[in-house]
Design a binder for these strands. Structure first.
Lengths: 76, 76
DNA sequence: CGAGAATGTAGTAGAAGTACTACATTCTCT
DNA sequence: AGAGAATGTAGTACTTCTACTACATTCTCG
């Protein structure tokens, strides 16, 4: 039962940094399609990868991943 | 490549609360042996389960899980 | 328009995580 | 000593995650 939904903010953080999936994937040491799968929510990362992502973006895991939907930032 | 080591403090937190693996497993909605595997480090949990564990213990994920070894609390 | 980069979709294959069962071992506690 | 709880070990089966390849689509910029 690890198939439950985990929401993530990877696209937002990546956009903030202005880096491509390919570059992020390279920095994380994973395949670039893996980042695509994560961003599209096709599955959630392993804990190992989640920790690496949080480490890369220099934020706590909870800032990127959550069991509950994130509040929208822009509501215009 | 999610086979890398993730250190965890589940045994310590569980001991602090004085609950058994069985009870923790029940609270998390997983098999009690799964908790055993995690505590023994046979594998690390999915992100989903890690978030549930952090939620259960009411601490950030980083308090329980880390890519790097935790400092020992008692060094006597 | 044309080229290259970024992203989306689809498929196979293998590694890792979880469930479950059964039994052994250790630990309390009376 | 004996009972019951907690924990460790072993094994099978299934799901999820990751790698990888290939190709389609969209975007950007000359």
């Amino acid at each position: 039962m690890s198939n439950e939904i985990v929401y993530n903010r990877i696209p937002m953080l990546r956009a903030e940094r202005g880096i491509s999936r390919k570059d992020l994937a390279a920095a994380l040491g994973v395949h670039y399609q893996t980042v695509g799968y994560l961003e599209r929510g096709e599955y959630s990362p392993s804990l190992f990868l989640a920790l690496k992502i949080a480490e890369y973006f220099e934020v706590p895991v909870e800032v990127i991943f959550s069991l509950h939907p994130f509040a929208r930032l822009g509501s215009s």
